[in-house]
Nucleic acid binder design. Structure first.
Length: 412
RNA sequence: GUGGGCGUAGCUCAGCUGGUUAGAGCGCUGGUUUGUGGUACCGGAGGUCGAGGGUUCGAAACCCUUCGCCCACCCCA
């Protein structure tokens, strides 16, 4: 039976789960398109080296969370752990980069080999946007607004946290400072932890570990290492958010897991998801495109956890419209004919043509338990007279209509 | 990778310090009701008690192993 199990952290999705997920997906797409972003689909499998070069060789994602395998000609491939690198690769591969501003979105499954817990699966679904070719605060603000619009439309209470990491030089001097600072406090950490922190010192500042927090709270924060120009850019972004009345919290401890982030970074968090409380995370990555071999273009984007959001939205009651039952078996085809006329007449209706063997009484029972609002029973009588009884299950009313009236009845 | 909790019907769970035939509610299904639902009543199906091994006269229960789920660390969306 082992071969009939799903892979750990990769559940089958159906019923309510998938209803929730597709509601989030639909709203994401709707909002992306309303901001005039274009859809992009890249393969789920890429060369592993792409992620080593983008997310970073030392990042946890690449070090221990990538599903990798050799294909038959010996290349090391992997299941994508995130979406940005693949999209940037595709823009370069297809020669789509120019001075013009480009706006793309994507949506699909990502894979990371992690211990599953609340809000964390091994196959999970992300939607994301990337705005390429604009480095000013205007683009920061737009990307932040796209995220906010989605969360608003989903009716979710959230908190926006932002920070500014600075460009390569600022970030490197901050890293150097942190390494030295950690070295001075080396005795406070275990060997293993210490070497991990040395490898990625910025990680220490948003650690939940009490021990680390106690030490790191005396360290200087990133703002001490930003250039005047960088401070100015961040101030512009923050000012614009104020003007637009977008609430935010500056969190100088906010850092991101991928090495490619520079400049503005942000996270939308919620409080009902336990430890995995980030539902949207993103930021500026002004060096990534160049480093992967493309033009030297600034860019900013975010990724959104579709399944995380799907866990916390409320689902409005879905309505199914018409259940068409039959009185005698030979009337089924006529019932299907009526059903299709109704569908052609109004494509947004959900119409079930009953195909089972239950009698009329059972059919009514089924229609009710399946959540249909109207029932039409079609039989010899209806076929002869072309007059139908439309039963409203919620109000216990029956309306008698001819075919033309029937079409009108369901036309709005 | 490290902790803690948990696997019994499709779902939510009960099942005492080991005791003979495995329980409830919900759902499903048949009937009361052969062209009209919701409520009610009566019946039915459905379980190698996660898997493998061990202890025992006897294991859903105790021990070991393993797989999975949940939560947290870590990491991140």
């Amino acid at each position: 039976m082992k071969d009939l199990k799903t892979i750990r952290g990769m559940p089958d999705l159906y019923d309510l789960d998938i209803e929730r997920i597709s509601r989030v997906e639909n709203i994401c797409m709707e909002v992306f398109k309303s901001f005039n972003y274009q859809e992009f689909r890249t393969p789920i499998i890429e060369n592993k080296s792409l992620f080593q070069r983008s997310a970073g060789e030392t990042s946890d994602i690449v070090q221990k969370e990538v599903y990798e395998f050799d294909d038959r000609n010996g290349e090391t491939l992997c299941l994508r752990p995130e979406g940005t690198a693949g999209l940037v690769r595709a823009l370069i591969t297809n020669g789509l980069l120019s001075e013009e501003i480009k706006k793309y979105f994507y949506l699909g499954p990502m894979f990371r080999y992690e211990r599953p817990q609340k809000g964390r699966k091994r196959q999970f679904f992300q939607a994301g946007v990337e705005l390429i070719g604009e480095g000013s605060s205007k683009s920061d603000v737009e990307i932040i607004l796209v995220g906010k619009t989605i969360l608003d439309k989903l009716g979710i209470n959230f908190c926006l946290e932002i920070n500014y990491l600075g460009g390569e030089e600022s970030l490197n001097s901050y890293r150097t400072y942190l390494r030295e600072f950690l070295q001075e406090n080396k005795d406070s950490f275990e060997e293993k932890l210490y070497s991990r922190l040395q490898r990625n010192p910025v990680r220490a500042i948003d650690s939940k570990d009490e021990n680390i927090q106690k030490v790191i709270k005396d360290a200087k924060d990133i703002t001490n290492f930003l250039t005047d120009e960088e401070k100015q850019l961040f101030a512009e972004t923050v000012d614009t958010l104020d003007q637009l009345k977008v609430d935010y919290k500056i969190n100088t401890n906010l850092v991101r897991g991928m090495d490619y982030y520079t400049g503005t970074v942000f996270e939308y968090t919620v409080d009902s998801l336990g430890a995995q409380n980030a539902v949207i995370g993103g930021g500026r990555y002004d060096n990534l495109i160049k480093e992967l071999g493309g033009k030297d273009l600034p860019a900013i984007g975010f990724a959104l956890g579709i399944d995380r959001l799907s866990e916390i939205i409320s689902l409005e009651g879905k309505t199914k419209d018409v259940f068409i039952g039959y009185a005698e078996a030979k009337s089924v085809s006529y019932a299907q004919d009526i059903g299709n006329k109704l569908r052609l007449n109004n494509g947004s209706l959900v119409i079930e043509n009953y195909l089972g063997n239950a009698n009329v009484s059972k059919q009514l029972k089924k229609a009710n338990s399946l959540g249909f609002k109207f029932v039409i029973i079609v039989g010899q009588e209806e076929q002869n007279t072309k007059i139908f009884k439309v039963k409203n299950l919620t109000q216990d009313e029956e309306t008698t209509l001819n075919e033309v009236e029937l079409m009108e009845f369901f036309n709005g």
